[in-house]
Amino acid sequence: MATPTTSAASIKLNADGSLNVLTSSVEMGQGLKTALAQIAASEAELPVHRVRVSEPDTAFTPFDLMTAASRATFCMGTAIRRAVHQVKEQLLEAAAAQLEAAKEDLVLSDGKVMVRGVQSRSISYADIVRLTKTNNLLGHGIFVAGSGPDGSPVVMDFETGQGYGSAEWHPAVVACEVEVDTDTGRVKVTRLHGELYVGKVINPRLCQLQVEGAMLFALGQVLFEELSTDTNGGITNPNLSDYMLPSFEDVPPQLTVHLLEPHGVTDVHGIGETSLPPVRPAIANAICRAIGARILDLPITPEKVLRALEGQRKI
């Protein structure tokens, strides 16, 4: 996760008891709107279908640094929880007066505030909003990353690139098996497994898929992706016909992911890129084990592999 980092969110509890999340985080296929809706719903004690997450419009939606660096679920999710918390306080204040009970004796559940242990003494969010005559309850939350994984301040020296680059560590291990055609040098990744710490999982299926995506992203970097430039520095392959990404046929026949989510863990972790960096040395190491030569520059093209094999045949 990039640091320093800031995310802000606004929450609007509507007169029908539904909840709107205003955020500048971007849904780009990673399932972020689903994850943020789940976080808001869980914090607000509402069914998830009663939560709507906005599209980003930076002229109107609150500030977010960027949707990148494995940060959105963690940073924006935290800002949303804080914003929902403000709305909950207003709900409890209003409900306490209406239900003639102390705030401490009230609980939120399924879109209602009720007196603990007394099902019959409850009031819906919609009724509370109506009673306040405001027609909506508003909350705001901001998350600013303050410290690194060991609690020390997050300080990055932009001149040297030294310092804490992240508010949390992202540990992952990747193992793989490759097949090398020793006539052509072409590498096929046959098995690829990622094992990573994910903290509390918001949505297991999306989490799994995003990790798979990160691993395929890395597979392309190891085997295919290469920017080509002319002598003036102009890019000569600025299209997806000449600049290669993996296709479905390049997906390892066995692609597996295991999410390490310790029992009872509560902290949410960014997972977008956790399994990405180790894919590169894992594939490179597997190729080295297969052919007995180490190739250090990416992408590891069939030509580089064949040249390495030819070098060995001459010895």
Partner: peptide, 8 residues
């Protein structure tokens, strides 16, 4: 024979 992505 493709040397890069399978769709190359």
């Amino acid at each position: 024979y493709v040397s890069r992505s399978s769709e190359d």
